[in-house]
Write a protein that binds this DNA or RNA. Structure first.
Lengths: 364, 364
DNA sequence: CTGAAAGCGCTTACAG
DNA sequence: CTGAAAGCGCTTACAG
């Protein structure tokens, strides 16, 4: 393969100049730059990432950690993040935890990531104290998406899960429902994954504000999956006297619930109303009423917030983050990834999308 | 950060010996290895990937290219591939084309991948002649999944799309259907993405074998998405005299079709039967009859086939592919990634899963 | 604006 | 089984 010396020789300059010209540094004359670019083009030169990283100290790579890429929210986030990162000239190293506890530990605790990436994005990744220690030792810039994980000093992009849950529950209350079930995650989960506890809290708050007392017999635990929602609903129905409405903590749970209801001979929404959270691709198709959350936008925004400080840092050194053929990273912002000031999370809006799965309860 | 010299000093050996001991090379005495491992442990040493790659010439990284990570098949494949790769000590660089033509070109045509990865996995990635040339110049080992993309000299893992489609169509024929519609990809697609053409062929073959002539007015084009299936079905119904059954080229199309039918006041399967291909997570829940294909298994198998030759090559050099803490790559196989012998694709089995979305046509 | 030279942190023949 | 030394291909002060 052609190396930087080949380009230097052909262009009649030093390798240092080739390096500068190719990275778009300002300290190269236009004429020289032109000759270098032509030579690189002619030789089909591409920089060796390993060498560049070793010499430059930056990897141009971001680790993105998700619980399960196959779930709608995570797939959608990763798609948006991938686009942003590659556009900015960064590589995306994917870590899919796949529900395997030991994998989370290996990803977060080994020094694996240390010299491998410039920054870390954690999407709804449950974190234990030991994980936080490991991340602190890693001393890399990072960001989290979703309230599932909070790392001291890292910014966070998410929705207001409590408010979203309140809105969903209030929608059912407004329709006249009083026996409203909830299906969400396991509250005894030892991991600090707060999404489901937040949504459960919003549900209970809305009930209380309406003068109702949450009924533990209507509060079900489930995985955040279609199958989990299905099972939880079967169990719920087995308890006798079904609710007139179900607030599912995510659309996948809601879909499972709809199926279980149908299998039990109950119609949605005539017999039981169902509402979820997400606005999954399928939700429109299934007529599922939901609290829509901007998954792709959370991914894009988090990616931008993560790269901005990197870009700023590179600029200070007279450098540029982007690869030669990639667009520039958006203008640096005031955000600092490290530092003592804990920043408040960036909260993106959700909105109620009413479809066919919710309606007034039957007049008994 | 601690470097290899720190470990060498603490263990009282040379950096060369540290390097060998840490990678599990056989040419290190047990006692020395123990001391080195203890020193590395004590210092929390982790090798610098950039330095290791530059010196060693291997990146320990695989590029995985998918059209859209958000679609069931691709998410499921990536999840399985990710697990296998990380288990074997490899990093996964994710490229999501996202339906953007220029992205495909940039990913495949630039020398971007050349010094960045050891191997490439292309999942149902449409390839033009120019792309094939670029891949050939890259001269990296690779593998493809799905018939969508075929690269000369690369192995391929897939299902038999023609047979799967025949089975699906025959299922409908066996139930007594005669007016069977098909919804699949755009046949004029200039990209060599053959999945939908293969499935269309199977559909037509099954009809002909039953003595029926394929009716172009029952043959619809669609994106491989829920929304695409929905739109195509709306259009199909607008043509008047609906079919008694629909064979959708994938489950996502089938789901869109079911919705459109429901919206049109038609019942599934009483008025119209629907069958898909995939066995999407949601299919069981929706009661969708389908031709199940092993997505995760295709990913795992392809990952293994891709790494085996790399492992073999490393072994020849007295090396080992896996990282110190990772498991060994499965035993090398006879497969050679380069070489003139075109290997036949590895075909994984599919199977008909009958659920509630198919039944006999109404007696008119 | 440009170049010579050191250095990034490893791995690999080579020699013993 | 082990070490000294070269070299992987860049980037970065430093000097001019």
């Amino acid at each position: 393969m052609t190396r930087i010396d080949d380009v230097a020789r052909l262009a009649g300059v030093s390798t240092a100049t080739v390096s500068r010209a190719l990275r778009g540094l300002p300290t190269v004359s236009a004429a020289t730059r032109r000759r270098v670019l032509a030579a690189a083009e002619q030789l089909q030169y591409a920089v060796s990432p390993s060498a560049s990283r070793l010499a430059g100290g930056r990897t141009g790579t971001v680790a993105v950690v998700v619980p399960r890429i196959t779930r709608w929210f995570f797939g959608t986030v990763v798609e948006a993040v991938e686009e942003f990162l590659h556009h900015a000239g960064y590589d995306l190293l994917l870590y899919n935890l796949g529900g395997r506890e030991q994998v989370r530990q290996r990803v977060l605790r080994t020094a694996n990531l240390h010299k491998r990436v410039d920054a870390i994005m954690l999407v709804a990744t449950p974190l234990r104290p030991a994980d936080l220690t490991a991340l602190a030792e890693l001393d890399l810039p990072g960001i989290t998406i979703s309230s599932g994980s909070t790392v001291p000093g890292w910014p966070c992009v998410r929705i207001d899960d409590v408010a979203a849950a309140r809105t969903a529950t209030r929608h059912l209350l407004d329709l006249g429902h009083r026996r409203i079930a909830h299906i969400s995650g396991d509250p005894d989960d030892e991991l600090a994954f707060t999404t489901h506890t937040d949504r459960r809290r919003g549900y209970q708050e809305a009930l209380r504000r309406a003068g109702l007392r949450p009924d533990p017999r209507l509060d079900m635990e489930s995985q955040f999956t279609i199958d989990g929602g299905n099972q939880a609903t079967v169990e719920l129905l087995a308890r006798g006297e079904p609710p007139t409405a179900i607030f599912a903590a995510c659309d996948e749970i809601a879909m499972g619930a709809m199926t279980a209801l149908r299998d039990a001979g109950l119609r949605v929404p005539q017999d039981v109303s169902v509402i979820g959270v997400d606005d999954h691709d399928l939700s429109a198709v299934l007529g599922l009423t939901t609290i829509a959350q901007p998954a792709a936008e959370q991914g894009r925004l988090a990616a931008r917030m993560l790269l901005d400080p990197l870009g700023a840092a590179a600029a200070e050194l007279g450098g540029v983050v982007a690869e030669p053929d990639a667009d520039r990273v958006p203008a640096p912002r005031a955000t600092r990834v490290h530092g003592p000031t804990p920043r408040p999370p960036v909260i993106l809006p959700t909105r109620l999308v009413v479809r066919e799965s919710t309606g007034p309860p039957r007049a008994n």
